[in-house]
Amino acid sequence: MNSFFFFVLTTLIALMLVYLYRVVRGPSIYDRVLGLNGISTKAIVVLLVIGTMFERVDMFVDISTGYAILNLVGALAIAKFLEEQGAQEK
């Protein structure tokens, strides 16, 4: 089972690289924000998979909950800022 979880972790991190490509190259700034959102969703999943691997889910659930809420607040703040600023960069 451990090797299966290791396979899942590797796949998730490879997928995060795909999103990182969108963050770096994305034509508009909104693509970058969406890419960051996708990366943080995958980071939540990665944290929980690590927790299951080391049999300490109770600890890692707290970390991923905090990560999820920080991600929500950060994304809403960026969206609010861009809405009022308008897109300087198309």
């Binding site: 969406l34 994304a75 809403l76 969206a79 861009l82």
Partner: peptide
Amino acid sequence: VISHATLRAA
């Protein structure tokens, strides 16, 4: 909520 906020800004 996040994707709606981003798209509304766009």
